[in-house]
Design a protein around this nucleic acid. Sequence first.
DNA 1: CCGCAAATTGACAGCGCTGTCATTTCTGTC
DNA 2: GACAGAAATGACAGCGCTGTCAATTTGCGG
Lengths: 337, 337
Amino acid sequence: MRVRLEDVARATGVSPKTVSRVLNEESSVKDSTRQRVLAAMESMNYRPSPSARGLAGSRSFLVAMLYDNNNNPASTYLAEIQDGVLDACDAHRYSMMACPLRMRGQDFIRRVDALVSDHHIDGVIVTPPLTDYPALLKRLQEHGVPHASISPLHREGTIGVCMDEQQAAKALVTHLIELGHRRIAHIVGIANHGASRWRLAGYKEALATAGLPNDPDYVVQGEFTFGSGVMAARQLFALPVCPTAIFAANDDMAAGVMWAANERGLKVPRDLSVCGFDDTPLATQLWPPLTTVRQPSREMGKLAALQLMEKLRGRGTGLLVQVPYSLELRESTSVAP
Amino acid sequence: MRVRLEDVARATGVSPKTVSRVLNEESSVKDSTRQRVLAAMESMNYRPSPSARGLAGSRSFLVAMLYDNNNNPASTYLAEIQDGVLDACDAHRYSMMACPLRMRGQDFIRRVDALVSDHHIDGVIVTPPLTDYPALLKRLQEHGVPHASISPLHREGTIGVCMDEQQAAKALVTHLIELGHRRIAHIVGIANHGASRWRLAGYKEALATAGLPNDPDYVVQGEFTFGSGVMAARQLFALPVCPTAIFAANDDMAAGVMWAANERGLKVPRDLSVCGFDDTPLATQLWPPLTTVRQPSREMGKLAALQLMEKLRGRGTGLLVQVPYSLELRESTSVAP
DNA sequence: CCGCAAATTGACAGCGCTGTCATTTCTGTC
DNA sequence: GACAGAAATGACAGCGCTGTCAATTTGCGG
């Protein structure tokens, strides 16, 4: 019924073990043999059984993507990462399981345990903000399960992928300055998220570099949601001297800012320049379209998964690769009034 | 190292097979025996190996959630469904794999084949718009893999979960009529999606029931995105006689309508009532908050998964359960001007 | 053409569980 | 109290693959 490894072996005239070697890309197989086996596999449409491989061997070819579904601000972001991870897994014949972790109490530790020991997970992709949850990372290490992080806050000894968000934020704010803006406000994301810190740091750096003052009134707290963007903007508009530009730490909040501006009768970008971060679909759906920083989430998921699988194969030491950002200059920003 | 079924058997003084029976909830085990075995499992922290179970038995305890990542308008929706499915799977010790399907050409058939035969998938959760892709359903049937659908267009012989979207749309539009609106427009979603059809039908039904005319100019095509909502609204505003209320087939488009209204200087809800559908997070982030229909996506994912697992266990015949909608009447709608 | 190390290949057991079928232990009945 | 039939349990093989280690083949210097 099902084509087994043994069938391929028989068809090729070699032992099952040799077919297994080819399957696992072991080096000690003569090239001519490998070719014959591969050809047979192909023509017989052989597909190894993950269950059998998992049971007999030490590897499961399973990768888990962990995410925090407790306070899930940006499901678009996670969905894109997930797709990228799946892409990479597909290409290397790995499978992926998506695993939401509710970070209440210590229950999540048990979930991690269950996951790892049940399914023999080979490796884990960790997404923000889980990337900086020490208890989780510690547990993974105890299990001996390698992980790759996406945009981790602490980068030493971590493999995965990141973007120079601070540099990107700086570039964005510098762009505003070049447009003639001098009163530039920033809406910060959820405290302690890496993204929030870096973007704030980039904002401050740009101001400092340009020799502009860093007015604390111009830095208000948000929480990455549309609503918090609206609230933060209202707060800024209530200031005695309004900013002429607002850099929100993500697109959702920027959309909130635009809404609030509108509510107050401010025309974007004529009266107020607005920019965000992430380049979510929202950015181009708003009117005017939002100036923002493109964060290649999907690509990042893919790269993180690739890094992980490299490590699993024992090839390379695993790196924290950096993906390039790109400024998407659109119509929500213009010269200062 | 690892606690095996055999260890539990030894500890309890029964044969491995009996432990296996308890594990699989077979009926032919004396109750006292079952209790002892369960106690031992608990105290030894026994966790069965999915690989071994998959290899030896006919079941894999794996469920796949299929989604279309080609044109993915509403990743929030899918993310919520996914979480619901995961919830249900967790509860019944099943695992879930998320599987995006690119519906280009015939490649996706191979992907389905690979999925089912590689992983021995026990069952599949199908999400819109895949629910109505005949080639996919046929292939699943050929593989003998049961599936549960979420909001399928064709309901006969299907198990899964649905909502009476037509009724919900009717109720929403009826609400507008009760507020005194007579010129009510509708922005349709992507053609052929079940959601689009039902919501349009509900709109028409409400008008007909109230004896209002069905002006074709007041029904414009959208595609479930913010941008398409903006375009559609502009089209409606350009009409000689403007509608006083717009029912968009989803929240994203409704947000687009609100934006366009704003752009044109129309105050919502004073000059124009707007309502959407789905109750995405966006609905409460807009200002004014959006009147919409709550679609319990997460709950629906959970229920679909439960239906599927019931079927897998051979219990019950599997149903298409209907979840209740609820009208979320908020500030974006008010009495007609 | 031989001997030896290196390169390749193969034999075999067993991973942890379940399907099949045989066996034992209960029931209730006359 | 013996007996049929049902209920409960067990023995055993084997799912499809890989780890271990042994066997074979190859390449090469002399």
